[in-house]
Write a protein that binds this DNA or RNA. Structure first.
Lengths: 139, 139
DNA sequence: CTACATGCAAACCCTTTGCAAGCCG
DNA sequence: CGGCTTGCAAAGGGTTTGCATGTAG
């Protein structure tokens, strides 16, 4: 079962309607493959209204089906949430990013929260640099 | 020597002019004490033009004299760069944040970059949750 | 003096919203 | 059918820009 069906089922379960525009957005996201901007999605969905695309993205993000990655320049990318909690390696050259998980890193984060008497509810870790391809090309 | 003088000297060294508006912005930043929004700065500097405040902030950020902290809602705070590299605990209740450093955490980050054959140039770690005060009040 | 810096207002970008019409269940 | 959804266009906020004027060096 692909993302489109999965997400659609999930939406219906919670009480959201399965509509043509909604499914179109889901399909476009599944087809994207790589991280995409809202603009990318909009362009690939000329027949779906701007507002609907934004609303659907927001919905999916709230349901944690879509993962939002803030870039250093303030812009935002989205990509299918690979399920589990993870962090990102963001390439300054090509803009692509890779996910990784690191239990030890997460443990340090827990520990810092504890040390500061802080109730941890979430965290974000982004690494910026150059991937191998971009480093090679000096891009 | 305070931030204002330091930053001013640094700017002159690199070839930027020391102007009254520029110094006013520097003083306001130094006086802020806590993390501030651009709006805060603008309000505290009624006689300095909007554009100048933005331009100066950008300049200081590029020179790494000012540290930029993205919040979960997409808004941005700034604060004096405490020199050293650090991370943040951001309170969802009051919006304040605390800095911390963690060598072990940084080590994990280095290790992840190495493991992914990624040239690390920078990274951001933000923890979100509730500080003690806000947790108590259920704010 | 000359080039860089400023201030204003308008332009911009990205996202959200109001509202009438449409469609799912 | 009733109410959630949509699409449009307009509003919104946050930041940047063009240009004439001011001013540091």
């Amino acid at each position: 079962m692909g993302f489109t069906e999965l997400a659609n089922a999930r939406l219906e379960t919670i009480g959201f309607r399965s509509t043509a525009p909604r499914r179109a957005v889901l399909r476009a996201i599944e087809a994207a493959g790589a991280p995409f901007t809202v603009e990318d999605l909009l362009a690939s969905l000329p027949d779906v209204g701007r507002a609907t695309v934004f609303r659907t993205i927001k919905l999916l993000h709230e349901l944690e089906l879509l993962c939002r990655v803030p870039l250093e320049d303030g812009s935002v990318r989205y990509q299918l949430s690979q399920g589990e909690h993870h962090h990102h390696l963001v390439c300054r050259g090509c803009g692509r990013f890779t996910e990784f998980t690191d239990l030890e890193l997460d443990a340090r984060i827990q520990e810092q929260a504890r040390a500061h008497d802080f109730t941890l509810e979430g965290h974000a870790v982004e690494l910026y640099g150059l991937c191998r391809e971009c480093r090679g090309q000096g891009a």
